[in-house]
């Protein structure tokens, strides 16, 4: 595990030096602008707007980082042949995959943690106080983080066998498909093709169901998130990520470096 930690921390260091965290500036400006603007208008929806915008921006920025860094995690190292040096040391390929995932996960965690601080700052500016239901927002942020970890794992999987452009397309496609998983299953209600039910059911169960992680509108309205959903989403994400990382490790394990 020590080697995993070493490579993960180096992946985090790479992200920091590549100025990935600069997105925080854009996020901060966006939130500050929104808070100031709607704080002036004050038509009782400013809190709703800040919550919706803040959480959506967190998802959007996080998604951009997860996809655009994730797709290069293995490919870049293979292309630039830095893996030659790494795998000549006592580093297993499965350790490398796990470490890369943890490294980008850490980057996303730091990113989201800093965004959360800014987000609550903007919320405080708008409301002039923070109340108990505002803690529900932390659950929504936690779900955003789980969602981003899932996307990272998928990007890593595609990165281990395809080019960055294809990996980005596949990952984004799966994210969109996973966000629409429920709608895809409902297709059979509108189209009567005998075999379609099988296909849509298969797609529904295969693609990661991102919709389950989206509780933004309910927490924006001050509704609590059931504890069962927190556990279920955590278990679902852990299982799915575990399977995807195992597949990535298997693919890389059998690959000849070029």
């Amino acid at each position: 595990m020590q080697r995993v930690a070493v490579i993960a921390l180096n992946t985090f260091r790479e992200a920091v030096r590549d100025r990935v965290l600069y997105n925080l500036i854009v996020f901060a400006l966006l939130l500050m602008g929104t808070a100031v603007l709607f704080g002036q208008i004050s038509i009782q929806i400013e809190e709703l707007i800040v919550v919706n915008l803040g959480l959506t921006a967190m998802t959007f920025f996080g998604l951009a980082i997860a996809i655009f860094i994730g797709i290069g995690l293995v490919y870049k190292e293979m292309d630039k042949r830095t893996l030659y040096v790494l795998f000549a040391k006592p580093v297993r390929r499965s350790e490398f995959i796990l470490a890369k995932f943890c490294g980008l996960g850490l980057t996303l965690f730091v990113n989201i943690a800093l965004m959360t601080v800014g987000f609550y700052g903007a919320l405080y500016y708008v409301k002039r106080s923070l109340a108990g239901p505002d803690t529900y927002l932390l659950v929504a942020i936690y779900f955003v983080f789980l969602e981003l970890l899932l996307v990272t794992a998928l990007a890593l999987l595609f990165s281990s066998f395809s080019s960055p452009v294809l990996s980005a397309a596949f990952t984004l496609g799966l994210f969109i498909g996973g966000s629409l998983a429920d709608d895809i299953r409902e297709l059979t209600r509108f189209v009567e093709i005998p075999w379609l039910g099988l296909v849509t059911n298969a797609v529904y169960y295969l693609v990661p169901n991102f919709r389950n992680f989206n509780v933004i509108s309910s927490v924006a309205h001050g509704q609590p998130v059931p504890a069962a959903l927190v556990w279920l989403n955590t278990a679902y994400a852990a299982l799915y990520i575990g399977l995807v990382l195992a597949a990535s490790a298997l693919i890389l394990q059998n690959r000849n470096l070029k």
Binding site: R81, Y84, A88, K89, P90
Partner: peptide, 19 residues
């Protein structure tokens, strides 16, 4: 792979983490 603990390797035209 544990034997690599006692092995050193220089690849041809090496490239390292440039950051």
């Amino acid at each position: 792979i544990e034997t690599h603990q006692r092995i050193g390797f220089l690849p041809e035209s090496p490239y390292f983490y440039d950051y």
